[in-house]
Design a protein around this nucleic acid. Structure first.
Lengths: 195, 195
DNA sequence: GTCTATAACGTGATAGAC
DNA sequence: GTCTATCACGTTATAGAC
C-alpha cells in the first residue's frame, strides 16, 4: 500500500508530488506553476526548468500514474493474489485518495476537463483509463469463473459500473461527506456476491 | 423531454444557455466571459451587465439546474408516472448530455473542481446533489416496495451506486467512446431487476 | 442593454545572472 | 539548478459613452 504514495528525494519527483496533490484537489486548469513552486518553497522558474510547459508537467504526471498502477498490479501478480485481494487493493486506491484530503480520482478530473487539457494529456488519459479498466476486467472475469464473484450481465458492463461508481462517488463525497464512500463500497461488494 | 433543454428568448437565459454548454464541455475554471460573449455575438461587458461576477453566473447556472429538475420531477408526479418510467426519465438526462456533444453531468464537473469554485457555488452544488439523490431514493424505494425493482442491500447504497455510476460513465465516455454509456445503463437496469 | 476602453491581476513562459 | 526580472497574454471586472 505504501507504493501508492511512494515519495522520492529528487526535485523532479517532489514537483510531481505537489502537482499531483493539486491536480486531485483543484483540477488541472485551476492550479498554476506558482502554486507548485510555493508548496516546494522555490520560484516558478525552477519548475519550468524541470518541466518546460504545463503540458509537459501534466503529461509526466499521468505517465507516473500509469507506471505506478503497472508496478502495483505486477506486484499483486508476483504475489499470486486472489481476485478478492486484488479487488480490495483496487478499492484501496480511491480509499487512500479520500483519506488524503478528499482527493478525487485523477481520471475523473482529467475526463471532466478533457476538452480543456492539452492533447498529449488527452492521449495519456486514454491509456491510463484503458490499462486500469482492462486490468479490472481481468480480475472480475477471473473471479467470476472461479466462483468467488457472482453477478448478472456481462463482465464488461460490470467493470464499467464498478469503475464509474468509484470515480463518481469520490466526487460526490465532496458535497455529501465521506460516509457515502463506505456505503457505495459495501453496495458494490454486495452486488459482486461478496458478503 | 423538451423541458430539459427548453430555450428562451431573453438575453439572460441565452447567456445561461451558453454558459451551461461551456461548463459541461470544458469545466468552470476553463471557460471565460469572453467565451460566453463570443458565442452570443456580444462583448464581455454585456455579460457582466447581467451577471456582475463569475460567481453570480455560476450560481445562477446551478439554481437553474435545480429549478429545472424540480419542474421535471413535479411534472412526472402530476402525470402519476410509475417508478420505471421515472427511472427512464432519470436516465434520459445523462443520455441527452451525451448526445449533445459528450457533455458531462454538471455535478460531476462542479464536484471535481469543488475546491476551486466560489463558495456560493459550492452551497448550490450541495443542494442540487441532495435534491437529485433524494428524489432518486424515493423512486428506487417506491419501486422496490412495489416489486418492480429488485436488488440486494440498502436503498441508500443502491442510489449512490446508480448516481455515481451515471456521473462517472459520462466522464469515461470522453476517453472510451459513447458505447460505454449504453453498456452501463444496461448493467444498471439488470441489477435493478429490469429485463 | 450594449458598446469601447481600460484597469488590475494571474498565468505560462523566457533570458540571463549566480 | 535556482534565482531575479520581465514579457505577452488572457481573464475578471469597472467606468462611462451611446
Amino acid at each position: 500500500m505504501d507504493k501508492i504514495f511512494a515519495k522520492h528525494n529528487n526535485t523532479k519527483e517532489l514537483i510531481l508530488d505537489a502537482a499531483e496533490a493539486l491536480l486531485q484537489d483543484r483540477g488541472f486548469s485551476a492550479f498554476s506553476y506558482h502554486h507548485v513552486a510555493q508548496q516546494l518553497g522555490v520560484k516558478n522558474a525552477a519548475i519550468h526548468y524541470h518541466f518546460p510547459s504545463k503540458a509537459d508537467l501534466g503529461t509526466a504526471l499521468i505517465r507516473r500514474y500509469r507506471a505506478r498502477f503497472r508496478d502495483y498490479t505486477r506486484t499483486l501478480e508476483r504475489e499470486n493474489a486472489d481476485p478478492i485481494s486484488k479487488l480490495e487493493c483496487y478499492f484501496a486506491i480511491p480509499a487512500s485518495y479520500l483519506q488524503n484530503g478528499r482527493k478525487i480520482c485523477p481520471l475523473g478530473i482529467l475526463e471532466a476537463e478533457f476538452n480543456a487539457i492539452p492533447e498529449p494529456m488527452q492521449l495519456e488519459s486514454r491509456l491510463l483509463d484503458k490499462e486500469m479498466r482492462d486490468w479490472l476486467a481481468g480480475v472480475i472475469g477471473e473471479g467470476r469463473s472461479l466462483g468467488v464473484f457472482s453477478f448478472e450481465g456481462s463482465a464488461v458492463g460490470k467493470v464499467l459500473v464498478v469503475a464509474a461508481a468509484l470515480q463518481g462517488v469520490l466526487q460526490i463525497t465532496r458535497v455529501a461527506g465521506p460516509q457515502v464512500f463506505a456505503a457505495t463500497i459495501e453496495q458494490i461488494k454486495r452486488e459482486l456476491g461478496i458478503f
